[in-house]
Each structure stands twice: as C-alpha cells, then as structure tokens.
C-alpha cells in the first residue's frame, strides 16, 4: 500500500473513531471497546476493498458485510456514515427513541446494513447463506463476516464454520477481532477459545493472523484471501480493545459503557489531535 493511501485510511479511521465516541456518548450507553478495536479493518473494508455504492445500498452484486459482533454497531454506523450512506451528524442519535440507528444493526432500516445482528453467533451463519447464494449466482460478490473472539464461544459459530468449509465457500471471509477481552474478563480466563487459528484450520479454513491495526498487513491479508480457492478464509486480527482512546485501551470495563462528559472531552481531544497530526 502506498503512503498516500495509507495516510488517507488513517485519516478515515480517525474520523470513524470520532463517530464511535460521538455515538456512544450521545446514546449514554453502548459498546466503545470492541468498536474501537475493529475500527481499522472496517474502515479498510468499506473505503478500500468492498464493491459498494452508498447511493445504491441494495445493489444486487454488492459485497456484503455481516457484523456478527453486532454490539459494535457504533463502529459499523460510523464507517457507513463516513462512507456516505447516511449523515455523520445522525450518529449522535444512536439508540435514541426516535432514531433509525438501533442499538444493534437492523437490515432494512439502516442504509448499508446487510443483516440484522446482535445475538452472537448468528451473523456468520447468515453470511454463509449469502455466500452459498452467491456461489449459485456465479460468484458476483464476496461476503465478510466480522466476529468477536468471545463470540467464538457460541456453538453456532462452529456449525457455520463447518458448513462454510463443506460447501467450499471461498467467497467468504470471517474476520475475528481478537482483542482478548469479553464482558466478564479476559477470554482466556472466562472461556478460552484458543487456539483460534488451529480451530479454524481444523475446520478446513485458510487462516491468516495479523496485527489488526496495521493497514499494510490488513490489505495483504485480504489480498491473500481472494487468491484462496475452495476454502473459506479466517483473518484473525490481533487488536487492542479500546484502541485510540488512551484510557479505554485494554480495559475490560470499556466493553459496554459510555464516557461521561469529562471522559468524552478527553477522548475527543485525543482523537482530534491524531486527526490534526495526520492532516497537517
């Protein structure tokens, strides 16, 4: 990836992070930690990879993304808004009683959302259905399922993983946001899904493990996934929960709570400083 594209991605990711904080602060609740950890990959996919059109969110041959870890809707909404699917200003209405921006993604209600999610494990299953259907239509699109690492504790994930390999869904990529934390603590202590890479390999998947905050590595991984035939690919992102907001990083407490006014101001100041540094 050339420096110019990389810098633009970093700028976009900084804007998406600002949108996440605006959304969660506006809602006075929600999930900032996992939104910030998956932010870079979502930004890359929607800005640099996927065949999508904000003017025509339902175009039949579009690439699809299912946010299986639906609680990180603030990240998805912020990416979609910054990509032009709806006004960035609307992010502040997240979870409000009169807003279309529901607490978890809803198909048909929010432009750019490809599947209703929120109940963990179900998104990857639906993504398998989309990929299977795409195979019957001459592979005109690719499907991305974005999962949390704690989500891998849901048995349904592995039912879907089995089916994806069995039907050789090479148009499907599962992205696992391995930030290491879930609500009750470290995933290794609550209910370890490790080794994640070996599990997917054993289920018949092509597996790539990368630094989920390194755009060069991210691009390389998705390039590699497109070359894999007859096998789905799992890209395991090593990430930092709360990435980009100093006091949220690696803190399990920021899984599902909103910053207060002071914390909000700190977060916005940090992210704006980052954005200024990138754009100066």
């Amino acid at each position: 990836m050339d420096q110019l594209h990389k810098k633009q991605l970093e700028i976009n990711a900084a804007k998406v992070r600002l949108g996440i904080i605006e959304g969660v602060y506006g809602a006075k609740c929600g999930h900032p930690g996992g939104s910030l950890s998956v932010c870079d990959t979502l930004t890359y996919l929607y800005f640099n990879r996927m065949n999508i059109d904000p003017e025509n969110p339902s175009m039949p041959d579009r690439d699809r993304l299912v946010l299986s870890k639906g609680h990180t809707a603030p990240a998805l909404y912020s990416v979609l808004a910054n990509r032009g699917f709806f006004p960035v200003e609307d992010l502040k209405t997240l979870r409000h009683i009169d807003s279309y921006l529901q607490g978890h993604p809803v198909l048909g209600k929010i432009p750019g959302v490809d599947m209703s999610t929120g109940s963990l494990g179900q998104g990857i299953s639906a993504a398998c259905g989309m990929a299977l259907s795409g195979k019957l239509d001459n592979d005109i699109y690719r499907v991305y399922a974005v999962l949390g690492d704690g989500e891998l504790e849901e048995g349904l994930v592995w039912e879907a993983a089995m089916l994806a390999a069995h039907y050789q869904l090479d148009n499907l990529v599962a992205v696992v946001d391995n930030n290491g934390l879930q609500i009750d603590g470290k995933i290794s202590e609550v209910m370890s899904p490790y080794p994640i890479d070996e599990k997917f390999k054993a289920f018949g998947w092509h597996v790539i493990v990368i630094d989920g905050h390194d755009f060069d590595a991210i691009e390389k991984a998705f390039n590699e996934a497109e070359t894999v035939a007859n096998q789905p690919t799992a890209i395991i992102l090593k990430t930092t929960k709360g990435k980009g907001v100093s006091y949220m990083e690696n803190q399990v407490g920021w899984h599902g709570k909103a910053p207060n006014e002071e914390e909000y101001n700190t977060a916005i100041a940090e992210l704006k400083a980052k954005l200024d540094e990138l754009t100066k």
Binding site: S125, C128, G129, L156, A160, M162
Partner: peptide, 18 residues
C-alpha cells in the same frame, strides 16, 4: 446443513437476503 438446525435457519436467512 447437517445436524445443525440453528445454523440452517441462519443460512436460510442469509439466502433470503439475496
């Protein structure tokens, strides 16, 4: 879909979206 009814329903949903 094999003996995996929950997954079958998810797969059906995904197909229906297309």
């Amino acid at each position: 879909c094999g003996i995996a009814e929950a997954d079958m329903m998810g797969v059906a949903a995904g197909i229906a979206t297309t």
